[in-house]
Design a protein around this nucleic acid. Structure first.
Length: 257
DNA sequence: ATGTCAAAATCCTTTTGA
């Protein structure tokens, strides 16, 4: 089973890229982030025409997440991150596929930092970490994937020293990432490529993609039983070079059935 | 400090978030 994550950066404006990517790479499961569209604007017909069923949690202008499954209906297990009824931002959706819980995450960016957005990010991660501990304790096979907006280590940023004051790489963010990982999750892409420079995001400024000046913020975190089934994985780097692309590359893994 | 992109509001330019 091939599972992918892709921050599409606006599902309406990037629909041609999304459809071409589904056609060319044909993941079984696709977790999408930053739909930037309300529920009623989700392009269900185009996605069904491409051979996928979908669940989605939209939001006007910002955020929004979805999970697509090839040829089959999805069994949704969670919509919205639990733990705060006042948080209305659409940043989490989860489904069970072939016995694996798949959580699709769009973690807050948090810039500018410090400030209220950074405070929200740290609170969100804390709430997320409470929830993922429950998932871990359940003993089920779990995959957490998406745009984490967290640069794990210096290896994961071009000129990391320039990111130290950014919400994606501040000490508080890295510490929160470590707390999460230490619950027992495996960073699949790093596990497959120890020591290798891999980027999943290239901003639109200053030809970042052409200069390979990126960061690695789109992740797959696996519970132990899924890690044992991990076959391979990668980054669809070329997609970032397509016409009118997202600023993120799709990332994917394959696990044994 | 800068840069790009797309969408919404301030409404055909400017502001915003990323």
């Amino acid at each position: 089973m091939k599972i992918a994550t892709f921050n599409v950066n606006g599902i309406s404006s990037r629909l041609p890229v999304l459809l071409r990517w589904l056609e060319e790479k044909s993941p079984d499961v696709a977790c999408l982030q930053e739909l930037k569209a309300p529920d009623e604007k989700f392009p269900l017909q185009a996605i069904e025409d491409a051979g996928y069923k979908a669940i989605w949690h939209g939001q006007k202008s910002w955020n929004g997440v979805a999970i697509l499954l090839k040829n089959d209906q999805l069994a949704e297990t969670q919509r919205g991150l639990p733990g705060d009824d006042e948080d209305l931002q659409s940043r989490y959706i989860e489904a069970e596929v072939n016995g694996i819980l798949i959580g699709c995450i769009y973690l807050p960016n948090g810039n500018p930092a410090p400030g209220p957005k950074f405070d929200y990010k740290l609170k969100w991660v804390e709430r997320f970490t409470d929830y993922t501990q429950k998932l871990m304790n359940s003993g089920k096979p779990v995959i957490l994937c998406g745009d984490f907006n967290m640069i794990p280590t210096e290896l994961d940023a071009y000129k990391a020293e320039r990111w130290v004051n950014d919400a994606l790489f501040r000490p508080e963010t890295r510490a929160a990432y470590q707390v999460l990982i230490q619950q027992g999750w495996t960073d699949a892409i790093r596990k497959l490529n120890p020591g290798k420079i891999i980027y999943t995001y290239f901003d639109f400024f200053r030809n970042a993609y052409q200069r390979n000046a990126g960061i690695r913020i789109d992740h797959f975190l696996l519970s132990a039983s899924v890690e044992q089934r991990l076959v391979t994985g990668g980054v669809d780097h070329d997609v970032r070079g397509w016409e009118r692309p997202s600023d993120h590359c799709p990332v994917w893994i394959e696990v044994k059935d």
